[in-house]
Design a protein around this nucleic acid. Structure first.
Lengths: 135, 135
DNA sequence: CATACTGTAATAAAATATATTACAAATTTA
DNA sequence: TAAATTTGTAATATATTTTATTACAGTATG
């Protein structure tokens, strides 16, 4: 299942990149995406864990980038918000007595691994700055 | 949200490719993946719509491939079971008064379009036969 | 010390995917 | 031709996952 983590995170970072010298509040950010501030703070917690942003608590607090947008690749964002892209697996423990059931998930996994490599390759060539410049 | 359509469909097709001259019942197929036969028939309905398989109703009925496994690409399966791969969108109508909110989904869409092209390119180089030979 | 933030856990609601039931229609074969 | 077996499909139920909300403790500012 695809959650909005990547989209939310890239949205947050794009906003932060537009105001690199200010602390933006989760409420302000949430207002741009019509989302609950708590969800924004949750993704910010993840960004902090990855040393992409820093936050300041208290009045006039908020969040800002720790690195320049040109030094943040979309692949880094992908990796910190997505496990992997998949097209799905056989979920109910496929029949181990069937040669296909027995191996299907391993073979799908190999297939998806290649897909993720391609995606990473592409995203690693795009910086947050590149993305942000489109706005 | 990722549904199991692709995985179920490729599983069905792999089984059919192993018995190209037989009509396999949805119950037999479901047994290999531990899934309800109705779900198998649903995906088979989709395969029929795309002229990949044919079914025979009634006793001793079932489903078989209409084309050789070497002529079915994983990309074709991808296209008939997946809308597109995405890393998510801003869902709640982002704020149109914010330059970022206003354009975020369009820009994400462009990004994902490139990803889907890469995935298609990769999958179009793999046939059902190639995949099936791994079992 | 009041105000305006972050941080985070707990819970609720909504959306989506998966499973089941039910039964009509078709085909085989005894 | 009747019983058995299978597909086709709609309707419904259950489970899972996402998303939203509530609540409140902790922290910095002025």
């Amino acid at each position: 299942m695809i959650s909005g983590k990547f989209a939310i995170t890239i949205h947050i970072l794009t906003l932060l990149s537009k105001f690199p010298d200010e602390y933006l509040s989760s409420e302000f950010i949430a207002g741009s995406m019509n989302l609950h501030p708590v969800l924004v703070r949750k993704e910010i917690a993840n960004l902090k864990k990855n040393n992409i942003v820093e936050s300041k608590e208290g009045k006039n607090g908020g969040t800002r980038l720790l690195k320049s947008a040109s030094n943040i690749s979309l692949d880094a964002i992908f990796k910190m918000t997505f496990d992997t892209v998949t097209l799905g697996f056989s979920k109910n423990e496929p029949n181990p007595d069937c040669p296909v059931g027995k191996q299907i998930n391993k073979n799908l996994e190999n297939l998806y691994e290649n897909i993720n490599e391609k995606i990473s390759l592409q995203l690693s060539g795009i910086s947050l700055e590149d993305f942000s410049n489109k706005f």
